[in-house]
Amino acid sequence: MEILSEHDKEIIKALQEDFPLCEEPYKILAQRVGISEEEFLQRVRKLVAEKKIRKMGAVLRHREVGFNANALCAWQVAPDKLDATAQIMSNHAAVSHCYDRTPAPNWNYNLYTMIHAKTRDECEKFIDELSSLTGVTNYKILYTKKEWKKTGMKYFCESL
């Protein structure tokens, strides 16, 4: 893992705060770090090129835009089929996240997808589609009952 400079960490800390809704947002962020806007923009472009930044953008509150049935679905996939299965599931528009994870004792699910739908019926229809597309029949639907926290990560703020 290549080391991030302290300077990069300062830029990341400024970027992970709420993006200013004003004419020159990068200039404001640059001022917080104490560098010029031009240098700040160059640094951001470099972080994008290095793929340390995935995107500059917004996340909507999905319930407010009509997605009321949201489930984590845990799948039990044969290890030799994991990669192909994950690719198929990732191609489905209702799947926002797809990770493979090391299972735990007594919990033998190794692939995890977040599925967003307008209703539970629709959510289960999507899960049926994923199951028949991949042939994976052993799965567990974990509906969201309550959101206790959802935030962006604040990096480099641990008190280690």
Binding site: I12, E17, K52, I53, G57, L60, R61
Partner: peptide, 16 residues
């Protein structure tokens, strides 16, 4: 309340 967050999304693995 439509926007949860506007900002930068990092690749956590690439930040260590």
């Amino acid at each position: 309340g439509f926007l949860r967050r506007i900002g930068t999304f990092f690749d956590s693995n690439r930040l260590g």
